[in-house]
């Protein structure tokens, strides 16, 4: 049935004879394209390396990183610099908040006195702490952590501790803080000293905590399963917040944070994998 169409197509296509194949031109163009492509790849790789070097220095809380790095004290030359990652950010109470996790490869002396963060008494618990996790001592300070020394936010355990309460073998330090306008003003939980490191069983830790005394903002942190790459939170007024999962320095454990306006409540939380398939849904 299709033969007439096929033969008509063949007639049309064969009406003209193409010029001889410009093999040399094609080869020349192909080589030029390959050269450009390689140059582009090299430039991209160079940019990626440059960005990887530059990003830790230009994170919203540069003072945190620099201050922390500058407190190496007597062992500054041999102590690896702390690493900072942004777990999430958002606007609440008329300010933009960044939630930062700072990882100390080698625990500084005194976990409760981590450089760059004010002392815990400067803050009080937020007005709402639905689901706030509590550490061993019963303080609602752990937004991610659930139990002091074996907290869910793990660390590599490979650090070489120097002093303070992290002197036990294999311990390293970790802390999460919130920052606005580049200045850290809230410490969400204290340094964790975790000898066992992160393990899959430590996922599923969620909680929130007030960011200031006025109750204008809270931070909700989560430590999801490893397959989760993004999370969306629905608030009581129907609006949604979405954030990407960050890998915690040192442990590669996934974590994220939302900044929730103080006048709204968390309603539900959806977590998605890389294919944007729903991994979990929680009513909060």
């Amino acid at each position: 049935m299709t033969d007439p169409l096929r033969s008509a197509l063949a007639d049309s296509a064969n009406r003209r004879t193409p010029r001889p194949a410009p093999v040399v031109d094609i080869l020349r163009a192909g080589r030029a394209r390959r050269t450009r492509r390689r140059a582009g790849l090299a430039a991209t790789a160079a940019c990626a390396v440059a960005a990887a070097v530059a990003v830790p220095l230009t994170l919203p809380g540069p003072q945190v990183v620099q201050a922390a790095a500058g407190t190496g004290r007597a062992t500054a030359s041999s102590v690896p610099a702390p690493q900072t990652v942004v777990l999430g950010k958002g606007a609440a109470g008329g300010r933009t908040w960044w939630v930062l996790a700072v990882y100390y490869p080698v625990a500084p002396s005194g976990c409760s006195d981590l450089p760059g963060f004010p002392a815990e008494p400067a803050l009080s618990d937020g007005p709402s702490s639905s689901g706030a996790a509590r550490n061993k001592s019963g303080d609602a300070t752990g937004a991610i952590s659930t139990s002091g020394a074996s907290g869910a936010v793990g660390t590599s355990g490979a650090g070489a501790p120097t002093a303070g309460k992290a002197q036990a073998k294999g311990y390293s330090a970790f802390t999460v803080g919130a920052s606005t306008d580049g200045r850290t003003i809230a410490q969400l939980f204290e340094c964790e000293a975790n000898p066992s490191g992160w393990h899959p069983g430590s996922t599923g830790m969620y909680g929130d905590r007030g960011l200031d005394n006025a109750g204008s903002a809270r931070v909700f942190t989560g430590q999801p399963a490893k397959s989760v790459v993004s999370a969306t939170m629905t608030l009581s007024d129907g609006s949604t917040l979405t954030t990407r999962v960050a890998l915690l320095p040192g442990s590669k454990a996934p974590a994220y944070a939302f900044v929730v306006p103080g006048n709204l409540q968390e309603k539900s939380l959806d977590e998605y994998n890389a294919q944007h398939h729903l991994v979990s849904h929680q009513n909060l």
Binding site: R16, P18, R19, P22, D25, I26, L27, A29, G30, R31, R33, R34, R37
Partner: peptide
């Protein structure tokens, strides 16, 4: 169009070369 066809093939082959 025959000329566009030749250009298209030439471009496609140059892209395939690398």
């Amino acid at each position: 169009d025959f000329h566009e066809a030749e250009d298209l093939v030439q471009t496609t082959l140059a892209k395939a070369y690398p």
